[in-house]
């Protein structure tokens, strides 16, 4: 192709102009504003998670957490939790309001911790701890002109022996607790 011929010259000009335009476009594209962080979809996901968590936020008067050592039995009971002193019996220890008061060995309290030895029912450290709670609750009841109700929630691992349950109830009874409720997880079946 000879550029000196008139027809070919205009073609070359057109090509040249197209090339320049392409360069211009490229430069223009380079000057587009820097993209902002795209977090809209992340915000949507977080909002959904937030709503779900707000809905499932525990509004119970006492906080109970299951663990490998404290798996609660399932029950068909419908009574909700109420505010009371929590006595928890896990596979390893007895706790009062989340504070360990006695260790368990093979699901039983060591006889040295009992008032009357192996056959005894009263667990000394549990009794002392509950007595302290009772005094505190009685003081609050006196100041607020409310009667002392002596309510206790017994949160026990599903594999706890009946013997240990009765020992705990007996000890709590001796420490002036009168009303007991067992705590179980929702979801039992009687069909």
């Amino acid at each position: 192709m000879d550029p000196n011929t008139p027809g070919n010259a205009s073609q070359v000009d057109a090509l040249w102009a197209a090339k320049r335009q392409a360069k211009k476009d490229k430069r223009r594209l380079r000057t587009t504003p820097r993209p902002k962080l795209l977090i809209n979809s992340l915000m949507d996901a977080f909002t959904i998670i937030l709503c779900f968590l707000l809905k499932s936020f525990g509004s119970d008067p006492v906080q109970i957490r299951e663990s490998d050592d404290l798996k609660l039995p399932r029950s068909t009971a419908v009574q909700p939790l109420e505010d009371a002193i929590v006595i928890a019996i896990s596979t390893k220890a007895i706790m009062v309001q989340d504070i360990k008061v006695a260790d368990l060995r093979n699901g039983a309290v060591d006889e040295s911790m009992k008032r009357d030895g192996q056959e005894g029912l009263l667990i000394n450290p549990l009794f002392d701890s509950l007595k302290e709670k009772v005094q505190h609750l009685k003081m609050i009841a006196a100041r607020t002109n409310q009667p002392f109700e002596g309510k206790a929630l017994v949160v026990a691992h599903s594999g706890t022996s009946y013997r240990l349950v009765t020992e705990v109830l007996y000890t709590a009874g001796q420490a002036e607790f009168e009303k007991f409720k067992f705590v179980a997880a929702e979801g039992g079946s009687t069909n």
């Binding site: 936020f57 029950s75 109420e82 067992f182 705590v183 979801g187």
Partner: peptide, 14 residues
């Protein structure tokens, strides 16, 4: 968050 609801069973002292 509470994913398992807990219920109570009333029992009279032994």
């Amino acid at each position: 968050a509470v994913f398992v609801r807990f219920m109570t069973l009333t029992v009279n002292a032994p």
